[in-house]
Design a protein around this nucleic acid. Structure first.
Length: 216
DNA sequence: CAATAGATCATCT
DNA sequence: GATGATCTATTGC
């Protein structure tokens, strides 16, 4: 008997066990550098939460007091304080009454900076991601945007300020990973400093976000 | 394909 | 009271 429906293959690209065995957690020193440099180098790394994980394929750099698009622009107060704190922690904020976005805090303690993780290529825990985002029609759609990936990985404000260098919420790198081809563009969805080239994507990766009008 | 509206709330004016 | 580091469904070509 033939089925009428073509179904996507939601199986993992790699087992969680192999991912753990073949990657190392990024140390705090990785994050405690200039935000732009950290952003570029986060491409190709792996964001892990619990038993779900994906390769980072799209990021944006948000600077400190000189970047009008950054939450840190008006100085340390309220939710943005974590951006001025020690590097290697998560900054998770709630936006548009519905979504959460996750950043990695950069720069040395006392200086503001963060990298917004905008898209992942799912690697493991894919069935769980699909259960969390049942509307996704393909693996490429599961985590192809800042609001999508937090849902897929189960990241909420509960993880704001979490230490990304230990525990079950980490950023990892493949040992001996090959270099990545990077495209640079303006950041998406902002009004101020809208032409600054601070968005970085893995060239040609199908999991990157589509942007407001479907293009890039 | 492109454009637009609606959802829904923390934060700021 | 308005805006926002978004996503989805719907409408229109």
């Amino acid at each position: 008997m033939k089925t009428h429906k073509v179904s996507t293959n939601w199986t993992d690209r790699v087992s969680f066990e192999r991912l753990e065995a073949e990657t190392s957690i990024l140390p705090r020193g990785f994050f405690g550098r200039h935000t732009k440099q950290v952003a570029r180098e986060l491409l190709g790394k792996v964001l892990v939460h619990g038993r779900t994980a994906g390769m980072i394929v799209e990021v944006e750099a948000y600077l400190g007091l000189n970047d009008q698009a950054s939450h840190a622009y008006r100085g340390p107060k309220g939710r943005n304080r974590v951006m001025f704190g020690p590097p290697g922690h998560a900054y998770v904020y709630f936006i548009y009454g519905m979504y959460e976005c996750v950043n990695a805090v950069t720069e040395v303690d006392g200086t503001a900076g963060a990298v917004l993780i905008r898209a992942l290529e799912p690697l493991c825990g894919i069935e769980l991601m699909h259960r969390r985002r049942p509307k996704a029609r393909s693996i490429e759609d599961l985590a192809s945007g800042p609001g999508k990936l937090t849902i897929a990985l189960g990241i909420t404000r509960r993880l704001n300020r979490a230490d990304l260098t230990a525990g079950e919420f980490t950023v990892r790198e493949w040992r001996g990973a090959p270099p990545i081809q990077i495209d640079v563009t303006p950041r998406i969805g902002i009004r101020h400093a809208a032409d600054w080239p601070l968005r970085f994507v893995v060239r040609g990766n199908p999991c990157c976000s589509k942007g407001p009008t479907g293009g890039r």
